[in-house]
Design a protein around this nucleic acid. Structure first.
Length: 637
RNA sequence: GCGCCAGUAGCUCAGUUGGACAGAGCGGCGGCCUUCUAAGCCGCGGGUCGGGGGUUCGAAUCCUCCCUGGCGCGCCA
């Protein structure tokens, strides 16, 4: 719609003697200034040698001819402000955003926690970002596959396996027994910090760790079985934790499978044949397969060590190439977890796969949700993909980068992570040091906090219902917390702030939705998921209201219709925060309306109808946005 | 040394990709619950947008040089 106006402006500019001018539309700061604004006259002024105001007047005359235009103003030093025919505008907006044609499978890889300890707040940010992004892509019409990379043969699992054997004297049966505990991940959390300290202090540490890691990679006992038991049990725990906040997966992609099915060997042949890597015959990397690249500090990045083993980056290259369908190998999968709604989380396997497993991989595009510390290795991987394919293909594997979560000084101190000699900076979360807030602990604390409020406000509700409300509110608070700031901003996690449910918080967004739903109930309107059809003669009916009310109602309607555009912008920016801000601003606008105007109690039929419609339109957009952010809407609050 | 990120109100952060007077939340002060839920609303106070220079009709936004903080730059993962 806006495009048609832009085309008209461009045509008018060309007629005035300035062809190919940038005629991008803007949204005026307030509704009384108009619906669409063009600063185009400013751009034309230098070329024409006339004042922007006079040029703007000419543009305004041309725009005034268009059927969708109700009125055109020239404002300020030369803005052209367009007022549209509001009913027709909304009717056209209902057809939805311009959805790009699906271009094959779009993989979003997120969470990817080492399966050796409990998830913490840093992992929650990853999962919340990845899941919201995934929901947005799906909404925009993409075919999405959610993968969760499981490093089940890495040092972190090796360390915990070593801890059970050396520090606990446990055998496989004992580990399996412990793994059946409800929060086995907490047991591992503590053991992991314990074994990390032991590794640093015991002279036998480095050797023991090498042995454990080698055992995992090459399937030697007891490391292999104990490692597999730990990793499987922890993966189940992570799935439970993430399910609490509405995050689910299609496939757990295991490193062990990548090794056993020889995906690396396939990737290696590809790299070697395209001369993306070469055997270094001299220098400090003699005997290694290296990639020559300016990205590396000394011009060479080692991919295969001189002892023949593959580096971390090498394994990631194999994985990403498999995701993109570049390898002559396939992964097999079996069922790992069935969700209540009938969907399934699959897990890769080097044994026989299940015959009805979906065909995973072969993606047109892959987003890797990984924190900013990994941007260097991610660049290396992208470079390797480009070298065996093309520069276009480099763009098919994208690093969805975000900054980490640290602890605010106050929270760090309250939890006893004071540090040794601190002047009060934020403290980095560290699984190895046991510094952090566990995801389930935070969810528990949020749920308790929410339950206190729910009990106080709704003492007469059955307990089961109150519990459900508390859970929804806790999830809403958590998910909004994780996406309310830009992903490139470090989150200084503060417990008191997280537990506050006032102001710019998830519950604020939920509260607006609950209130809107209540109004619709009162006036007998349905709360539909899609934009409602506007009343006939919207322009005439709005004109019968005060200018102030008409402005507010129209802004609510107009903005509600932009949810698809906001989702598209979030997708392009690769940041759900765009949508979170959109939803928050909408909630603010609604709350402002709520306190100013009655709906059910309004005697004037025209006002009641228009206000009811505005609420219905608001809720339709708001509901969509909250759904894309994974924020549930409680029945009441 | 090189690279990435951040620097905006006392604190935590937005700022629609160069536009209209720089906004919100928290905290502070003052108001609003016989009317659809006060997890809310309204008002007040609070700013050299890290600093200098430049481009432009117009800069928090772009260029350049500095300053400060965080992270990264292994045959570790």
């Amino acid at each position: 719609m806006v495009r048609r106006l832009e085309d008209a402006v461009r045509a008018a500019a060309a007629a005035a003697g300035v062809p190919a001018v940038d005629a991008t539309a803007e949204v005026p700061p307030s509704a009384d200034l108009g619906d669409v604004a063009f600063p185009t006259a400013f751009r034309m002024a230098p070329r024409l040698g006339r004042s922007p105001r006079l040029i703007a007047a000419d543009l305004a005359r041309a725009l005034g001819e268009l059927p969708e235009v109700r009125r055109v103003d020239v404002a300020g030093a030369g803005y052209v402000n367009v007022f549209v025919h509001r009913g027709a505008w909304l009717e056209r907006a209902r057809s939805g955003p311009d959805l790009g044609a699906p271009d094959g499978v779009h993989i979003v890889e997120h969470t990817s926690i080492n399966p050796n300890k409990a998830a913490h707040i840093g992992h929650l940010r990853n999962a919340a970002l990845g899941d919201s992004f995934q929901r947005i892509l799906r909404f925009l019409g993409r075919r999405v596959e959610i993968q969760n990379y499981i490093d089940d043969t890495g040092v972190q699992v090796a360390d915990v396996a070593l801890g059970f054997i050396r520090l606990r004297g446990a055998d496989l049966a004992e580990v399996e027994r412990l793994a059946r505990q409800p929060r086995f991940d907490y047991v591992c959390w503590d053991l992991y910090t314990e074994v990390s300290q032991w590794l640093e202090s015991d002279p036998d540490g480095p050797r023991a760790r090498r042995e454990a890691l080698h055992g995992l990679e090459y399937g030697e006992e007891p490391w292999s079985s104990i490692g597999a038991a730990i990793s499987a049990a922890i993966c189940r725990r992570h799935l439970e934790t993430m399910d609490r906040m509405g995050v689910r997966y299609d496939l757990l992609a295991c490193e062990k499978t990548i090794l056993r099915l020889e995906l690396w060997e396939s990737a290696f042949r590809l790299l070697r044949d395209h001369e993306a890597i070469r055997l270094a015959e001299e220098g400090k990397n003699r005997g290694c397969w290296v990639m020559d690249t300016d990205l590396a500090q000394d011009g060479q990045k080692v991919i295969v060590r001189s002892n023949g083993t593959v580096t971390y980056v090498g394994k990631d290259i194999a994985y990403q190439m498999w995701q993109l369908g570049l390898l002559d190998r396939a992964m097999r999968a079996r069922r790992f977890h069935d969700y209540p709604d009938g969907s399934t989380a699959w897990i890769t396997t080097d044994e026989a796969g299940e015959t009805d497993a979906p065909p995973f991989g072969n993606a047109a595009l892959v987003h890797h949700v990984i924190d900013a510390r990994q941007s260097y290795p991610q660049k290396i991987v992208q470079e390797s993909v480009a070298r065996v394919t093309s520069d276009q293909d480099r763009a098919r594997t994208r690093h969805f980068t975000y900054e980490m979560v640290s602890l605010s000084p106050a929270t760090a101190a309250a939890l006893g992570f004071g540090g040794s000699s601190e002047e009060g900076g934020a403290i980095e979360v560290s699984g190895r040091k046991g510094i952090g807030v566990k995801a389930d602990d935070l969810l528990d604390a949020l749920t308790d906090r929410a339950a206190t409020e729910v009990d106080r406000r709704n003492p007469d509700l059955p307990e089961a219902e109150r519990t459900g409300l508390a859970r929804d509110i806790a999830v809403g608070a958590l998910r909004f917390l994780m996406v309310r700031v830009t992903k490139t901003q470090i989150i200084a996690f503060d417990l008191d702030e997280a537990l506050a449910f006032e102001g710019a918080t998830g519950p604020y967004l939920q509260y607006a939705a609950v209130r809107a739903a209540r109004i619709l109930e009162r006036v007998g309107r349905e709360s539909r998921p899609h934009s409602p059809s506007p009343p006939a003669d919207l322009d005439a009916r709005l004109d019968r209201l005060s200018a102030q009310e008409a402005g507010l109602l129209w802004t609510m309607m107009r903005e509600a219709a932009t949810v698809g555009a906001a989702a598209g912008q979030a997708a392009r920016a690769e940041d759900p925060h765009v949508l979170a801000r959109w939803a928050y601003e909408g909630a603010q606008r609604f709350n402002n309306f709520y306190h100013r105007y009655q709906v059910a109690g309004e005697a004037d039929g025209n006002a009641r109808e228009l206000r009811g419609f505005a609420v219905e339109a608001f809720l339709a957009g708001h509901r969509t946005a909250l759904d894309l952010l994974g924020i549930p809407i409680p029945e009441r609050m």
